[in-house]
Amino acid sequence: MREVAIVSFSQLPSSKVIHADEPELVQPVTAAAMEQIGLTQDDIGFTCSGSTDYLPGRPFSFVAAVDGLKAWPPIRESHVEMDGAFALYEAWVRLLHGDIDTALVFSFGRCSLGPVPEVLNVQNDPYYVQPLGLDAISAAALQARAMIDARKATERDFAEVAVRNRQNAVRNPNAHVKGPLDVEAILAEPYISSPLRKSLCSPLSDSAAAVVLAAGDTARKLVERPAWIRGIDHRTEPHALGQRDLTASASAKLAAEKAGVRKGKVDVAELHAPFAHQEIILREAMGLGEGTEINPSGGALAANSLMTTGLIRFGEAASRVLSGSADRAVAHATSGACLQHNLVAVLEGE
């Protein structure tokens, strides 16, 4: 199988509101990702994006996003109605073909436009769950309670995850929320949907991100130390919350196995956990131990622009490899309520 690497990553700093339409998000972030390695759109073999129409609440928002690109002469282009990390997966598959050597992947998400927890109810089963109005925080809260009942974690454990991510975010200029917060302060917060409190949930952010992939020698020419995708896999599980063991992630476990996470020491992992307790589930599922630094960026708990958060995990993990501060990194993205669908990749330096 052909070698493919992440060679560039760019993101717009996450914040509560970015006053920009789709092209105004896409143009600067894609241009920056290409410029960093001296490329223009003309050098790109395949372009793929990830987004959802339900964030802006209107159809075909990805068509508007194409207006942020130079698309002349016409380009090879595709779009997934999923997180941008899944667009990266499609681009990886496309590069395996061997006829083109580079791909641009981008995604954009503005949570400032609509009531995101309620919007996510539209992902639920339209017969049995949507009419009940199950919001995303309450769905995750059922999972958190199940963990407590199964004695897999305590509320204090959740708070500790949040504190560490917030602390890590201090060093991340692109994070949306960061800075000092202690466990006791979190445990004193009122419940939103018990046992979840505000700081155990990710913020809602606006952002955009772009990644450039390159194959083989092209990657080596573009950067000194490409972040090679040594394994990548994604798996889903049953949709109904009542048909899953919510305290574990069978799909993340399987995807990690297929991606070869345990084949070597993992220096750093960027996990897409929009709720603190989900980081604990993911670490267990992927077998990430004490030797692995988790979410040096602050993760989704520091910035969460839907549909972009997963791609940013890939970009952040790759950045550590590109810069030489890590030899082996894991990147993860999730989709659906309570970690239904998980994508895992192993990135390595030469």
Binding site: H19, A20, D21, E22, P23, E24, Y54, P56, G57, S112, L113, G114, P115, E118, V119, V122, P126, Y127, Q130, P131
Partner: peptide, 18 residues
């Protein structure tokens, strides 16, 4: 059929150029 109402309230802005 069963009714499947969706009601979501957004705040939209048209971006700088528009």
């Amino acid at each position: 059929f069963m009714p499947g109402p969706v009601h979501l309230e957004y705040e939209v802005n048209p971006g700088q150029h528009y």
